[in-house]
Write a protein that binds this DNA or RNA. Structure first.
Lengths: 149, 149
DNA sequence: TTCTAAATGTAGCCTAGGCTACATTTGTTC
DNA sequence: GAACAAATGTAGCCTAGGCTACATTTAGAA
């Protein structure tokens, strides 16, 4: 039945697996993207406003407060944040570490986009989605490229 | 109650909205990422194997065939693909157009990563997630940067 | 101190995209 | 042409992350 399968030479198989692995990595990155965004935002809000409240988080992310509260619950489940009823949200040490890493990465991505000639607005907008898929290896390359400039 | 709200100066508000808009754009890009991946893959399979079958699509993406079939159903709902029971999958003209656009964008992203010094493996892996968040404006900047090199 | 608006939290719904388990169809092989 | 293995499709479950509607708590104002 499967004629094409039989005809396909063996060398294709490793390539197929590599492709599948790339997609899987992208899916994984996506599943942590929300956590990363929240961690960074909570950290920013605490730094600039003194506290991170669900309503402010929701407004900044452009989602309803109910959605924000649900995601905050996930952050808590994953050990990245803490909060008490009707009180603001705080990051655990793990959450702080994540926020720092995300902030650094975000800046590097924006800077790289600017360095290759992407206009400011587009750089900031696109970085918001791109950053979650930039591996440490790629990040290192970005840093070196910016150093050379 | 909301002291920080009152204290926050007006100039913050446009910035908040801009930030929310960036996140919303990223969410939107994410929701079309799967469609884009399938369209490109189906197009590739038809070109290289003569047909695109759910099992092959599933194996290449690293998901179960049931998942692939569900996503193919969404492609059909969105007018990007067609298929008959127990037959392969085909792209509509809209699907073809999307696939072409995605393929071009994918190549450009990989090329740009390579050009700034990202190692081949990381470039190919990261591009899989990054590409979906690269706007036309950014893509143009990438192309110009590569031309200059 | 009480009232009330805003913030916070809860419930329940939806879609997308994963999965496994099972049913059906196809096409090759004997 | 019958049997069987592989491909395809279906059903049902799960989680994440959207939403609206409603309930509860808080804290500032009167």
């Amino acid at each position: 039945m499967n004629k094409s399968r039989v005809l396909r030479p063996a060398p294709d198989l490793p390539a197929e697996e590599a492709q599948a692995a790339r997609f899987e990595k992208a899916r994984l990155a996506q599943s942590t993207a929300v956590l990363e965004d929240y961690a960074e935002l909570i950290s920013d809000l605490i730094a600039s406003e003194g506290e991170a409240r669900p309503t402010d988080i929701a407004r900044r992310l452009g989602v309803s407060h109910a959605t924000a509260i649900k995601s905050i619950a996930r952050l808590k489940r994953e050990g990245l944040a803490t909060s008490k009823l009707y009180r603001g949200v705080f990051l655990t040490p793990n959450g702080e570490t994540l926020a720092r890493r995300v902030r650094t990465r975000h800046r590097l991505v924006v800077d790289l986009l600017l360095a290759v000639g992407v206009p400011q607005g587009a750089a900031e907008a696109d970085a918001e989605g791109i950053e979650h898929h930039v591996s440490d290896e790629t990040l290192r390359a970005f840093a070196e490229f910016l150093d050379r400039k």
